[in-house]
């Protein structure tokens, strides 16, 4: 479905890999370089999304909007009337209601395409390699195959485990360092890039759920799938955090939030 994105991405990844020398560690660096490049290319969309989120927060705090919400809650206006007046308020404040979700929607296929490009390029089974070969548009493709999937201590085509403690421990135990890194960076990314709660209980609950389940889910995927994906997740999370930090949008209060006093 996303072949129009995945195929060019595979070729860019392979081109970077070839440019770096197609040797040991080079596919890992190719993933890192391409992830950073993609994140930088998507930066205008990220910024526009953040601006829209900020505007929406302003709207949530606007006295007219608070009144409007109260009226709807109390049943003083119909849902249609509420929507009508909300639109009027959007116009008045110059807010595009799709402004925060449209950039996200545009980023989505690119980020998923990147995930699939990494998976496809690693081609760890015969069927995957057969599917990869016709999509390579580089002149000397045959000399590049198979990709050297070694990166630092990892085989990028395999779920990552570090066996450095096996000499000390009485049994062989592989520590999933990358999966842990993915969990930690996803946790910080979810926590630090989520806008402060506007007092909406439902939204706050959803945010809390996301900050718990998303890191678990991404950590589990990294534990199970090839290390190349985990490298992509970690790089993507870190670049995203740096981008937010540079824009001054890291929401540190989410990390050190004090317990709110009980309402009497």
């Amino acid at each position: 479905m996303l072949d129009f994105i995945i195929t060019p991405f595979v070729n860019v990844l392979l081109y970077i890999y070839q440019f770096l020398g197609a040797g040991i560690n080079d596919f890992g660096w190719a993933i890192l370089i391409f992830t950073i490049a993609i994140r930088l290319a998507l930066f205008p969309l990220t910024r526009s999304q953040l601006e829209s989120t900020k505007n929406m927060q302003k709207l949530n705090e606007h006295p007219d909007y608070i009144k409007l919400q109260k009226k709807r809650k109390d049943g003083k206006i119909t849902q249609e009337k509420f929507a009508e007046e909300q639109m009027a308020l959007y116009k008045e404040l110059g807010i595009n209601p799709l402004g925060s979700c449209l950039p996200t929607l545009l980023q989505f296929p690119i980020i998923i395409g990147m995930y699939w490009a990494v998976t496809k390029a690693l081609a760890t089974s015969p069927l995957q390699l057969i599917n990869l070969i016709p999509d390579i548009n580089l002149s000397n493709a045959s000399s590049l195959l198979p990709l050297n999937s070694q990166f630092l201590w990892m085989d990028l085509s395999q779920p990552e485990r570090w066996y450095g403690l096996s000499n000390i421990l009485p049994w062989e135990f592989g520590i999933p360092i990358l999966a842990i890194l993915v969990f930690v960076t996803t946790y910080f990314q979810t926590k630090l890039t989520t806008p402060p709660s506007t007092g909406d209980d439902q939204a706050a609950a959803m945010t809390k759920m996301m900050s718990i389940y998303m890191p678990l889910l991404m950590g589990w995927i990294s534990y199970t799938y090839s290390a190349g994906l985990a490298v992509y997740f970690v790089a993507s999370n870190i670049v995203s955090l740096i981008q937010y930090a540079l824009m001054g949008r890291l929401n540190l209060s989410n990390l050190v939030r004090k317990k709110e006093p009980a309402v009497k």
Partner: peptide
């Protein structure tokens, strides 16, 4: 809403990682 969100998240991840 909690369960709904979690179910949606699982569906999304399932679709993403199974190649749509």
């Amino acid at each position: 809403p909690k369960y709904l969100l979690f179910a949606l998240l699982l569906i999304f991840v399932g679709i993403t990682f199974s190649g749509c």
